[in-house]
Simulated assay, not measured.
Amino acid sequence: MTLALIAGRGDLPALVASALQEQPIVCGYEGIDVTGVDVDLTFRLETLGSLLLALGERGVTEVCFAGGLDRPALDPIKLDAETAPLVPMFMQALELGDDGALRVVLQLFEKTGFSVRGAHELAPDLVAKGGVYSDQWPDAGMRADAEIAAQHILDQSPRDVGQACVVGGERVLAMETASGTDKMLSGLPGAAREARAILFKGPKKGQTMKIDMPTIGPETLDAAAAAGLAGVVVDAGDVLVLHADQCAARADAHGLVLWARTGE
Rank of each mutant, 00 (worst) to 15 (best):
residue 97 G to Y: 12
residue 47 T to R: 13
residue 57 E to K: 15
residue 75 D to F: 06
residue 260 A to P: 12
residue 193 R to Q: 10
residue 251 A to E: 02
residue 16 V to L: 13
residue 203 P to L: 02
residue 38 D to G: 07
residue 216 I to P: 07
residue 46 E to F: 06
residue 236 A to Y: 09
residue 21 Q to E: 15
residue 86 L to A: 06
residue 168 G to K: 00
residue 145 D to C: 07
residue 2 T to D: 06
residue 154 L to Q: 09
residue 133 Y to V: 10
residue 149 A to L: 11
residue 58 R to G: 02
residue 125 D to L: 07
residue 140 A to H: 02
residue 148 I to Q: 04
residue 231 G to P: 01
residue 188 L to I: 08
residue 188 L to C: 07
residue 54 A to Q: 14
residue 13 P to Q: 08
residue 38 D to V: 04
residue 166 V to A: 09
residue 248 A to I: 12
residue 32 I to V: 15
residue 257 V to S: 05
residue 144 A to R: 15
residue 215 T to Y: 01
residue 154 L to D: 08
residue 84 A to E: 15
residue 107 Q to Y: 08
residue 180 G to Y: 12
residue 146 A to F: 12
residue 257 V to Q: 04
residue 258 L to K: 02
residue 128 A to R: 05
residue 17 A to F: 02
residue 140 A to P: 01
residue 245 D to E: 11
residue 174 A to L: 03
residue 203 P to V: 04
residue 54 A to H: 05
residue 197 A to S: 15
residue 69 L to K: 02
residue 207 Q to W: 01
residue 56 G to K: 14
residue 56 G to N: 12
residue 18 S to C: 03
residue 208 T to H: 01
residue 123 A to L: 14
residue 240 L to V: 03
residue 242 L to D: 08
residue 190 G to A: 12
residue 121 E to L: 09
residue 119 A to M: 08
residue 19 A to E: 04
residue 44 R to I: 01
residue 150 A to R: 14
residue 164 A to W: 01
residue 201 K to P: 00
residue 200 F to E: 05
residue 58 R to Q: 12
residue 117 R to W: 05
residue 58 R to Y: 02
residue 1 M to N: 10
residue 110 E to T: 12
residue 192 A to K: 01
residue 68 G to C: 04
residue 119 A to I: 05
residue 207 Q to S: 14
residue 218 P to Q: 13
residue 241 V to T: 11
residue 213 M to K: 05
residue 179 S to T: 13
residue 105 V to R: 02
residue 107 Q to W: 08
residue 20 L to F: 08
residue 189 P to Q: 09
residue 55 L to R: 01
residue 209 M to C: 07
residue 126 L to H: 09
residue 174 A to F: 07
residue 9 R to E: 14
residue 52 L to N: 02
residue 226 A to M: 10
residue 14 A to C: 07
residue 87 V to E: 12
residue 3 L to R: 08
residue 210 K to A: 15
residue 1 M to H: 13
residue 56 G to C: 09
residue 204 K to R: 15
residue 158 P to Y: 04
residue 168 G to W: 00
residue 251 A to G: 06
residue 76 P to S: 04
residue 49 G to N: 06
residue 17 A to W: 04
residue 52 L to I: 00
residue 81 A to G: 04
residue 251 A to M: 06
residue 156 Q to E: 15
residue 181 T to E: 14
residue 62 E to I: 01
residue 118 G to M: 01
residue 103 R to A: 12
residue 17 A to N: 09
residue 143 R to Y: 00
residue 144 A to Q: 13
residue 50 S to G: 15
residue 153 I to G: 05
residue 82 E to T: 03
residue 84 A to L: 15
residue 209 M to H: 13
residue 147 E to G: 14
residue 127 V to N: 06
residue 1 M to Y: 11
residue 243 H to N: 14
residue 201 K to A: 12
residue 204 K to G: 11
residue 88 P to D: 03
residue 26 V to Y: 10
residue 77 I to T: 07
residue 77 I to Y: 06
residue 76 P to K: 05
residue 81 A to M: 03
residue 158 P to T: 04
residue 234 V to D: 09
residue 180 G to T: 11
residue 168 G to I: 00
residue 197 A to K: 06
residue 211 I to S: 03
residue 103 R to T: 04
residue 245 D to R: 12
residue 158 P to L: 02
residue 54 A to E: 13
residue 157 S to T: 07
residue 51 L to D: 04
